[in-house]
Design a protein around this nucleic acid. Structure first.
Lengths: 227, 227
DNA sequence: AAGTGTGAAGTCTTTCACAGCT
DNA sequence: AGCTGTGAAAGACTTCACACTT
């Protein structure tokens, strides 16, 4: 009579980072009317090994059926619940340049537990314009807006030079989760959670692997001269 | 008399993923006229521990001076070289929607070893228009364009439904590195290197941590009722 | 005196391989 | 008969702490 299952285990970070991928694949399966999947099938859709998938899911509880697989709808629900997506999260986007506007218009968010409820900029020429159906508001109003609309997460999409100030406003407004698109490291209090997405970084990582592969296939076992 | 240093060690993936951050911080220091940094200082700028930084750099070789630190310009050069950025990389962006246009206009690439040399779309209404100074070309021409301009990396910024087809074109054009912004898993031959950037995934990871933190501070030691 | 470079220890993550359930 | 859930082994990454160099 223990009520809910192994809920109290800590979920490893590496697992948390993959749960959204599983959820997205499950949603697609559900839309195709698929009712049940094996770990093997789901893992293939996401591009991980089935052992890893099963280990990941085991941290949420025991929601599969041995000999059969997982019920798509039930597993979706359990992952959503683990991620905290049974409620919607309100987010704000700061910086209405090209990237900010693209993020505002991005509709990969809808149906994924996330709603954009505020767009902010500090440029008077941009404030008051309508982007993706929302009126752009001044960054200075963030404390009031964050409180009124229950904003949990801020996306910083400003140019690099304004990002630190934007982060300061966000923190001052009491928001403790930031997704940073500006190519700078933000210095925030340690209770604030930051994730960073940097295009140049991603491309450089690809460039590294590209170069390695080239070195391996074009010059197998050859020493390259010093530069 | 061993010629170049510990060049032949494999660089761990985790290290490679951080090298661009170090490089970016070093570039900023260089612009400020700083000539030398300690591991402690550089690590603080990037937000990692100094031990991790030193271990990372040790995989490239021994480019510091004991008791002193690292010469900013020399270390920048060595990291650039390790990443393969002593040459510029040409990239193509596929999909000229909001996100694709934002990426095309993004100038965090310039000065970071990366140049956008082609913009592609399949919509006749978009082909031929000018975006960020480049003419949008048909995806069908990718094989020719890739060969002519030496494209090494493709960014896929199409809607989810067109991403698989875009990936197929990219692979058919002989490009072996992809940065995927569409919220789907791409199925490609194993010699093709893929990295994925998914906004909804990033936000969901933040939401998870947000929720955890809330649970810890608001209800310490309390059991939450089953839903 | 200061700060790098690195073995060794500790932690986290993945993979293996199979017992156990349906 | 088939597929999950999981201990145990292997591997990757991080942190420690100090010998070594300037």
């Amino acid at each position: 009579m223990a009520g809910q299952a192994n809920e109290r285990r800590e979920i490893p970070d590496a697992t948390v980072a993959r749960l959204p991928e599983y959820l997205s694949a499950l949603t697609a399966l559900d839309e195709q009317g698929v009712g049940s999947v094996s770990s093997e099938e789901l893992a293939a859709l996401v591009g991980v090994s089935s052992a890893k998938l099963r280990k990941d899911l085991s941290h949420l509880g025991s929601y599969g059926v041995r000999g059969v697989g997982y019920a798509v709808d039930h597993l979706s629900y359990q992952i959503s619940r683990a991620l905290g997506l049974t409620q919607d999260w309100s987010i704000a986007i700061i910086g209405m340049g090209n990237l900010g506007r693209a993020l505002a218009a991005y509709n990969g968010f809808a149906n994924r537990g996330v709603e954009v409820v505020a767009l902010l900029d500090e440029d008077p020429a941009v404030i008051g314009t309508i982007v993706a159906g929302l009126r752009v508001e001044p960054v200075a109003d963030l404390p009031r807006i964050a409180a009124e609309r229950g904003i949990a997460i801020a996306l910083i999409a400003t140019p690099a030079r304004s990002a630190a100030a934007a982060a300061e406003s966000v923190v001052a407004a009491g928001i403790t989760s930031i997704l940073n698109f500006a190519p700078v490291t933000l210095d925030v209090p340690e209770e604030v959670h930051i994730r960073k997405v940097d295009l140049a970084t991603e491309v450089q990582i690809l460039a590294f692997h590209h170069q390695q592969q080239r070195a391996r296939t074009v010059l197998p076992g050859l020493r390259v001269a010093a530069q």
